[in-house]
Write a protein that binds this DNA or RNA. Structure first.
Lengths: 233, 233
DNA sequence: ACCACTAAATGAATGCCATTCATTTATTAG
DNA sequence: CTAATAAATGAATGGCATTCATTTAGTGGT
């Protein structure tokens, strides 16, 4: 177990750098924190398509196979990233603000964080919480907020799951192109839909309303907040 | 353009079958409908991991490269499958039942169809409707339902998007393992969450309530229906 | 009737990717 | 001191989507 892992990356592989010889180095080059940081850096620079085990290894100035001493598979890397991102979600209003407001700020923050990381959503959705301590911590804070707000204990998890489902779906929506609903040559066959799309576009142009994805998210979130809020005892 | 494409598959590649010689065959072996059908068959048999271009080609008794005369990339195959699945979504209550009920049956049907096909969700979410005629047709029907129910034109699209986001997120939830929320060794540090999880499990065991994913979906859907319903003029 | 063009197939690459394994070297436990 | 373990390299491996040259068959124009 490495006590204090060495600084990682070291100006990743300058051309002239002497090749490291085989065998265990005196100080470990890798650890989970470093792998996570490098993965995030790589993702922000090249996107999720650019996140390959080979690319990650290069970022860390290490052979690809070295990564497998620390993670069993690429999925584990995604898991590390996911858990780190969850720690960025703002839960601070739980305990200090009314339930409605706490949910509102949590949900917006949660959506915004994962809108940039939608490839993780399939991973999260199936991820046992045991494997993700930060994620578990978030659930604890949110659960306490719901219980303190008077939710019956047996409705808390379902309510959170419902909100989360909406949040994940909405995160995808953020990544959609602006003109996703333009029917093009088919417009003639879909008069009602086409009119609705045009009307929404006109609205968002004239009014000071934000991006379509934000409008839909606000609409759905407020509906969920008031609908779920009615469950409180 | 093939007038009447030949029956496809033909007991896919019996060992003894003579190898087809190179060159264009008299009757086209492939078309989009056949590719779609074979893809669905393959998916249902081997799942989305088993849906490879090579596997699809084998299913159709054809060389992999032949597929590229009909689709530009694998993404196009997914698109064909997506559009076909959308045609299975039940929109029949729009026009014959009250708005609330129509939305309810549509949403359940939509979720159930895509719960088996979550790998398509990232594709759908970014898919311009022009490329998917069945999907466009669904939007038309649903839009008309909203307008007839008295929704202001400029809120229709946002409302549908909000519902869809919830539906997609909930489809993932269906695929989650039952014990996803078991905190295991960390349970001690998350008392509120752990209690809520146990309480929900007890409820669903004692009561006749369905799977957790169904409970959460119903909860969120009813909240959205009543929240969005308030927008009607 | 001929000929150029296009459509639809084969089969052989190509390059990328995650993962595995044998090997080497260093640290640690008994 | 020695055996076990940890952490690195480097060389496979097998699967994957995709491309390209080639072959054959239909089609439209003169």
């Amino acid at each position: 177990m490495p006590a204090v892992p060495a600084v990682q990356g070291r100006a990743a592989g300058k051309p002239g750098t002497a090749r490291r010889r085989a065998g265990r180095p005196s100080a470990a080059l890798l650890d989970k924190a470093g792998i996570t940081a490098a993965a995030l850096e790589l993702i922000s620079r090249k996107g999720y398509d650019g996140l390959t085990m080979a690319g990650l290894a290069k970022e860390l100035d290490v052979a690809p196979s070295a990564l497998y001493n620390h993670v069993a598979a690429k999925r584990d890397v995604l898991l590390l990233v996911e858990d780190h991102l969850t720690s960025l979600v703002d839960v601070s209003d739980f305990g200090s603000a009314p339930w409605e407001e706490a949910v509102r700020s949590w949900a917006w923050s949660y959506r915004n964080v994962f809108a940039e990381h939608t490839p993780l959503i399939p991973v999260i959705a199936v991820l046992p919480v045991t494997d993700a301590p930060q994620t578990l911590a978030m659930y604890e804070t949110v659960s306490k907020g719901f219980l303190d707000a008077g939710f019956p204990q047996d409705r808390v998890v379902s309510s959170i799951v419902a909100l989360e489902s909406f949040i994940f779906g909405s995160a995808y929506d953020v990544t959609a192109p602006e003109d996703i609903f333009e029917a093009g040559s088919m417009a003639g066959t879909t008069p009602n839909f086409t009119a609705a799309v045009r009307s929404a576009a006109a609205q968002s142009g004239a009014q000071g309303r934000g991006r379509p994805a934000d409008v839909a998210f606000e609409l759905g979130l407020e509906a969920l907040i008031s609908g779920l809020g009615a469950l409180r005892g």
